[in-house]
Design a protein around this nucleic acid. Structure first.
Lengths: 203, 203
DNA sequence: TGTATTATCGACACTGTGTCGTTAATATAA
DNA sequence: TTATATTAACGACACAGTGTCGATAATACA
């Protein structure tokens, strides 16, 4: 399948990818030129085109690689727990949530830049798709019957997926002030219990 | 304050703004050039620079105008309801939520393009800020005591703000299949009751 | 060491940008 | 209606960055 890569190629691509993250952090994605990237990576501009079509292609490939690692680490979700475990776990961190935050922490520099810098194509979209799948399987596992959901299933999935992603961004923006385990617990709490401890609306 | 504008100026700017929305819809924001915009607007390219600094400036000013209208329409939120109203309203649409969806519907073409096309600078960010303020005042009105929230206040605000914004995007992507009133009701339900009707985790 | 692969380098045409100065069109007020 | 100020149109310019060449140098690996 994949032929062995020349070490120089690996080195060159890594230099370009690192340069991209740095430059986005410093100047924002739009302002960056291919010239800037190759200059920062101490490579000739023509070399860039031996590996990537353009600036966007470099971003895509970098993103794909990181997101693929994430998917591998949180799959398969929601397959092993018993109902008993579930009932006890509303205030405990789910294993899969912890893995999610752990994986973000491992590449926190890239995640922070790609998620908090504005106008970065693809990455946030790709991550949101992953989280939508994650939330979808979670809600389906908890409640496969549409009639027992408070709102349409699609709406609920999008609602919580976007909310989870935003909490990840919040965590990164604040330089990860809590542990992955704590964050996973919080997500579980707010999802199951809502925002208020003393909720006057429950029978 | 604001001097009277030449009708030609109003016309020119409107032509440019409309052309921008159309072209983003057709080709995506990044591919568009100032040349494209002025060509679509049947104006000379130099005319563009009499009104806007560059493509981004045109986008910013268009966005600001629309978002300002939105803020005006949902302010002041959460000031008049009594506790009694609140207790009854968990399954009723809040007036402010309805206004929010109504305002989106009025400019649905622009909202849809600016929110669903990827890599549009500023607009989603600006709207998210508005919704964060909205959610923040709502949660504060319902529960000013941090100790009675299930998670840290900042986290909860970001959680629900992102979720609400995503539901708006979902609504637009599906060409507004429900009324504003229905959507507002759904948001209230999922926020207060969570995703599941039969929630086994409540005492 | 020999050979294939990759990187470097300088150069090229091309596209889009931002800004001129000049001329034409048009809104508004006298 | 006419005068005048404002704005638009137009063509031209230097400039940035792009993507691609062909020739040459450096390097990995067998």
């Amino acid at each position: 399948m994949s032929k062995k890569l020349d070490p120089r190629v690996i080195r060159t691509r890594q230099l370009l990818r690192d340069a991209l993250v740095e430059l986005i952090d410093e100047q924002g994605y739009e302002k960056i030129t291919v010239q800037d990237i190759t200059q920062r990576a101490t490579l000739n501009r023509a070399t860039f085109y031996l590996h990537y079509r353009d600036k966007l292609d470099l971003l895509y490939q970098s993103s794909e690689e990181i997101l693929h690692e994430l998917v591998s680490s949180i799959r398969p979700p929601f397959k092993e727990k018993t109902d008993f475990d579930l009932l006890r776990s509303y205030d405990q961190p789910h294993r899969e949530f912890v893995y999610l935050f752990d994986q973000v922490a491992i590449n926190s520099k890239l995640y922070k830049v790609y998620l908090t810098e504005k106008n970065i194509p693809y990455f946030a979209t790709g991550l949101k798709k992953i989280i939508i799948d994650f939330v979808s399987s979670g809600i389906h596992f908890m409640e496969p019957d549409d009639g027992k959901l408070t709102v349409p299933r699609d709406m609920a999935i999008r609602f919580y997926a976007a909310a989870f992603l935003e909490v990840i961004v919040w965590w990164l923006e604040n330089d990860m002030p809590y542990t992955s385990k704590f964050m996973a617990t919080q997500l579980m709490r707010i999802t199951i219990k809502g925002p208020y401890i003393d909720n006057p609306f429950f029978k």
